[in-house]
Amino acid sequence: MFKVTKDMTIMQVLNQDREVAHVFMKHGLHCLGCPGATMESIGDAANVHGINLETLLNDLNNFFEEKSK
């Protein structure tokens, strides 16, 4: 199963499955196509946008866990 970490970029995660976009959107990360999505780590994005990193990672990994069933 694919495991999302704080060091990955948003684009690395989106490249695994574009349907995960709604999880990022739910957490307030709306600029999925901006240059930052390819360069900035998920940890950095969460920090900049005031998002709880642990909750975001849990939701992202839950998405991939459900997809693998």
Rank of each mutant, 00 (worst) to 15 (best):
A21M: 10
D7I: 00
N15M: 12
C34H: 09
Q12V: 01
T55Q: 15
I51Q: 03
D17V: 01
H49L: 08
F2I: 03
I42S: 02
N47G: 01
L53A: 10
N47E: 13
K3T: 14
M1K: 10
G36Y: 10
L29C: 01
A21G: 01
E19W: 03
L60F: 12
H27D: 05
M8W: 04
S68E: 15
S68I: 03
M11H: 13
M8P: 05
E19A: 08
I42E: 07
G43S: 05
Q12H: 11
D44Q: 14
V13E: 09
L60N: 06
Q12F: 10
T55K: 15
R18N: 07
E65H: 11
K69D: 00
F2S: 06
D59H: 09
I51N: 05
T5M: 06
N62A: 12
F24I: 00
D17G: 07
N15L: 09
D7A: 03
D59M: 05
L14N: 05
G36F: 13
L32G: 03
H49Y: 15
L60Y: 12
F24L: 00
S68Q: 14
H30I: 08
H27K: 05
K26T: 13
L56Q: 07
M39T: 10
L53T: 13
G33H: 11
C34F: 13
I42R: 12
M11K: 14
M1R: 10
D59G: 02
L60W: 12
D7F: 06
N58P: 04
L53M: 09
D59A: 05
D44Y: 15
E19Q: 12
D17K: 04
T55C: 01
T5Q: 10
M25K: 09
V23F: 13
V23E: 11
V20Y: 08
M1L: 05
T9M: 09
L57H: 02
A45E: 01
I10Q: 02
C31M: 08
I42H: 11
V48W: 13
T9K: 06
F2Q: 03
I42A: 01
G43V: 08
L29R: 05
T5G: 07
K26C: 03
A46N: 06
L57W: 11
G36A: 07
N62L: 09
E65K: 15
P35C: 07
A45V: 07
E66Q: 12
D17Q: 03
M11Q: 15
H30T: 10
S41K: 05
E19V: 01
H30F: 14
G50F: 08
E40Y: 11
R18Q: 14
T55S: 10
A45G: 11
H27A: 00
